[in-house]
Amino acid sequence: MIVEAGVAIVQLMVVGLGAPLLLGMLRTVKARLVGRRGPRPWQPYADLWKLLGKEVVVSTTSSWVFRATPYVLVATVLVAALIVPVFVAHPPLAFAGNIILLVYLFMLATFFLALAGLDAGSAFGGMGASREVAVAALAEPTIIVAVFALALRADTIDLGRVVERFGHEPWLAANPAHLLAFAAFFIVMLAETGRLPVDNPATHLELTMIHEAMVLEYSGRYLALVEWAGAIKFFLFMTLLANLFFPWGLTSSVGPGAMLLALVALGGKLAVLTGAVAVLETSVAKLRLFRVPELLAGSFALAFLSLMAVILVQ
């Protein structure tokens, strides 16, 4: 019991403190790829700390939904952080749910963020909310079908056990169904975390924003919470990609040496994935908004093919 609580705290700290670093690393690598020196990888920590000390300006049009949303966002991603296998194969809250719970927890976050976008009564917020829920709704079938393909082969949908069973499989990465599911999940990750080619996180043009448009009204500590929750969501999606599809290095025991090794393995996998995302983001242009459903339909087709491959082989 005490051990589990300890693992939970360590996992929360790894995710909570590591998420801004991951985002910072992504920005640095992207900058280097276009010939700039770029910000330091720990810049997001400085941004968050500064925001905590700033005044909060709240719109007179908005209601308690606007003020509660940042805390709801943080709550959902922190609970999600305890369900995703980060460095321990059996995360603390694994008994509480599985991928379906994860998907719907993220939808809870999107629901409240969209409401907060509508709450301020500005056209930007409404537009961001409308686009964000459309992308989230269209991405959901892909996540569930892709993870179901994995669950079918592993004979369980509990994420910890899926990771454990695949960890013993040497030729996992060569399995075509596995790679198709990975490709589908990768595209969905880009859509859900608001990265190019679906959404440009650094854009200043409100008409091109999807996620950013909803947070235009937030300031001070609310903005800090929203940004932090966004970083954790990105971290969790990357961790899912790394650990579900390449489950090596996860430890089943809780000894400090094993956990440290697992953390190093996680760091390595995340570094490779971040590099891939950075290369992709600097190479492609943002898609027209009404082309995004086509991209998501394509990812669904990949996930469906992966599932069919598993079913036909069985």
């Binding site: 000390g53 005044e55 909060v56 300006v57 709240v58 719109s59 007179t60 049009t61 908005s62 301020a120 009564g121 500005s122 930007f124 235009l216 009204e217």
Partner: peptide, 10 residues
């Protein structure tokens, strides 16, 4: 510091 200020929507 827990300052909050009300102002119109941006």
């Amino acid at each position: 510091p827990h300052r909050t200020r009300d102002y119109e929507t941006w």
